[in-house]
Design a protein around this nucleic acid. Structure first.
Length: 139
DNA sequence: GCCAACGTTGGC
DNA sequence: GCCAACGTTGGC
């Protein structure tokens, strides 16, 4: 089991919309960055991902789960990039803001801080657990 | 709205 | 293959 963080602007794709799609989930497409693509390619069915709202909110708001491993992004005409299918899993009781993450010395290594432009990134188990606690949820 | 940090493109 | 110019993302 591997953990990830997915980023989206809530006015494009919010956790609420994700929730509304229910069990069938949504295709996570539109990624046009090689580093993000490589990460998508490593995802396994069942992996869990934090769902981060960029720009508006700037906080981790929930968790989604990978239900279909990487395939060619249907929106990519050149068929170079990948997409996965994810479904809504859980909402944070208390969203964990970027400011809170920055304040926590144990989360210094999160790529979210260093590489703010990357939209798909791995999260190590330790950080995952810390953030779950901060959001006062269990999985 | 500004700007830093990246990515990408295209001329050479 | 290098690098300048340009475009985009996202925090502030």
């Amino acid at each position: 089991m591997q953990y990830w963080l997915l980023k989206s602007e809530p006015n494009v794709w919010s956790i609420e919309q994700q929730k509304n799609e229910g069990l069938k989930g949504v295709v996570w497409d539109g990624v046009r960055n090689y580093q993000a693509k490589n990460n998508l390619g490593k995802m396994k069915k069942g992996d869990l991902c934090f769902f981060y709202h960029s720009n508006i909110g700037k906080e981790i708001v929930g968790i989604v789960q990978v239900i279909k491993e990487a395939f060619v992004d249907p929106t990519d005409r050149k068929k170079k990039f990948l997409a996965v299918r994810v479904k809504f899993k859980k909402l944070f009781k208390k969203p964990v803001s970027l400011a809170d993450i920055k304040k926590n010395n144990n989360l210094k290594k999160l790529q979210l801080i260093k590489q703010s432009r990357l939209s798909v990134m791995p999260v190590d188990t330790k950080s995952w657990k810390i953030i779950l606690k901060m959001g006062s949820i269990t999985i």
